[in-house]
Design a binder for these strands. Structure first.
Lengths: 236, 236
DNA sequence: GGCGGGCCTTGACCCAGGTCATGGTGTTCG
DNA sequence: CGAACACCATGACCTGGGTCAAGGCCCGCC
């Protein structure tokens, strides 16, 4: 179901163990507890746009990002809009809630955002067994899920109650510390919960106000203080 | 921190065990595992408006609703708006994510919605110890958190992408199967993510369309089919 | 070189939802 | 009984955000 087509896949217990033991979730566990998991892991290499899983899939695999990044998103409004829930980078878990939370189908899609993106695939059943039987691991997983939930809550609350300008300012502050190539407006729109046209307008507005420099999709923050004022206020 | 003032509080291990073993979260555990918890529990009786905890509190207590209901909500927009995240009835957990997810401060307020509301208070440390040490319990708690997260996601997504009319229709279908006394418009507004004025208007509109009967805050659904059409469409 | 497609930008327009202010209708309590 | 209070209803108005359509720029490809 989740696995599709012809992709590079390979075991590598040593690297898997390395990755597991440096991840925030499994990092706290004794290597002895992780070794059996590492032995079962398979690395998989993806290119931008490659699908990890789709909404509705029954997931029998837990993913841990090794390099690159994975976008987790939902399709809403009868397919007319996408909402990016989070973007996971190295050492982060994808599909944690679904794998641990019973056999409910995945509530979101996941695709690779960069080429290449490498993920470690772990069989769900074994992970569950290992995790539930190891109190320290169980605690870590629960803590991670709880934290994820808090983040999600903050993000969506921001979506509901803040204005687009605020959200865009937050994004720019978070991602454009260094001069930076902006993702396509359609990606930004999915992230900010709006449509490409409005992203374009707001960016233009910020530019006109002298808050950012914008040249061929390269942005640089010029007036950090003012952006922070715009972002700040409510929320964070 | 969480406990405030002069409230009725009392142990009752037999009832506590009864409640624990019938709750969705702890129900799967062997009574032997629950007995120590039950012995530590204290029942507390609240009246409408009584505070269980506030956003920012460090929670050292897990709550299980015994009777009545508890509203969990966030205050946003610099205090000008409230957003009800969920309303928990009997056998449901309150503050699960905070208690299990490390020592982060609570992200929301919780108050009793009815008079009387009775909750079972369990010391967080003992619960954690018990849960993490019992694989079946750990699995159940994780599953419950994951499910909660999915619900939250669906709720907030609905808030972002659906119109007020849809949300109100959903509410009416869910809560007004039998003729039913509507909560104050301000409560509804917090639940639906809007302001009382708009609730008033929409209710009036539904009434004028002959979808509901509305007499002194008593509602009855007249045209279920049409309401379902309004609610349906996108989302659920 | 020129044609076509993807993406960005911009203008015109529309509308749901929010704000503010006013007046009505209980209900409670001195 | 009547004043005070809380909640509800409704009108006027404003505005952020969404939609649609037209046009421009860039790039790859035939």
């Amino acid at each position: 179901m989740a696995a599709s087509g012809h992709v590079t896949t390979s075991p590598d217990p040593a690297r898997a163990l390395e990755l597991l033991s440096h991840s925030p979730i499994f990092g706290g566990a004794a290597p002895a507890a992780l070794r059996p998991l590492a032995a079962l892991g398979r690395f998989r290499t993806l290119r931008r746009g490659d699908v990890l899983f789709r909404s509705g899939d029954i997931l029998e695999t837990l993913f841990l990002v090794s390099s690159g990044s994975v976008r987790v998103y939902r399709v809403v409004r009868g397919g007319t809009r996408e909402l990016t829930l989070h973007v996971e980078g190295p050492r982060q878990l994808v599909a944690g809630a679904s794998v641990f939370g019973g056999d409910d189908p995945a509530p979101a899609h996941a695709v690779a955002l960069q080429t290449p993106t490498e993920v470690l695939c772990l069989p769900a059943a074994s992970v569950r067994e290992q995790v539930f039987g190891t109190p320290a691991l169980a605690a870590a997983v629960i803590a991670a899920l709880a934290r994820r939930q808090a983040e999600l809550l903050a993000r969506l609350e921001e979506l509901v109650f803040s204005e687009l300008g605020e959200r865009l300012a937050v994004y720019l502050l978070d991602h454009a510390a260094a001069p930076h190539a902006l993702p396509p407006n359609s990606d930004l729109a999915a992230l900010l919960g709006t449509v490409p046209e409005l992203v374009s307008r707001k960016l233009g507005e910020f530019y006109r106000l002298g808050l950012i420099e914008l040249e061929r999709r390269q942005v640089r923050v010029l007036d950090r203080a003012e952006l922070e004022r715009l972002a700040g206020r409510r929320g964070r």
